[in-house]
Simulated scan of single mutants.
Amino acid sequence: MEEDLKNTMTVSPASPFLGADVTGISVALDQFLLLRFRQPALTGDEIVGFSNLFGTILSDRKNEEEMASV
């Protein structure tokens, strides 16, 4: 099955200045509930910002600023 996904998904540079185009990912989405991308080049704040695009993040964890005010 892993070989099937490798042969389907492609990543191509969009331009010298802008990310990449990913195609063929719908096959993986049809087979798996979650896709994990290793070693993201994003900071923690960027990941949270991106995640907020999908809705409110619910967490019982407190950041350093919240912990200082307790």
Rank of each mutant, 00 (worst) to 15 (best):
E2D: 11
D4S: 13
D4W: 11
L5W: 01
L5R: 02
N7G: 09
M9F: 12
S15Y: 01
P16A: 12
L18Q: 09
G19Q: 03
A20M: 05
D21P: 00
T23V: 05
G24C: 02
S26D: 15
S26P: 00
S26I: 07
V27R: 10
A28Y: 02
A28M: 08
A28G: 01
A28T: 05
L29G: 02
D30R: 09
D30A: 13
F32K: 09
F32G: 00
L33F: 03
L33W: 04
L35R: 02
L35K: 00
L35A: 07
R36G: 02
R36H: 09
R36S: 06
F37A: 05
R38Y: 05
Q39F: 06
A41M: 12
L42S: 05
L42H: 11
T43L: 04
G44W: 10
D45M: 07
D45S: 09
I47E: 10
I47Y: 03
G49M: 10
F50E: 13
F50Q: 10
S51E: 11
N52D: 06
L53I: 05
L53W: 06
F54T: 08
G55H: 04
G55R: 05
T56R: 13
I57E: 05
L58V: 12
D60Y: 13
D60R: 15
D60Q: 14
D60S: 14
N63H: 07
E65N: 10
E65C: 01
V70P: 00
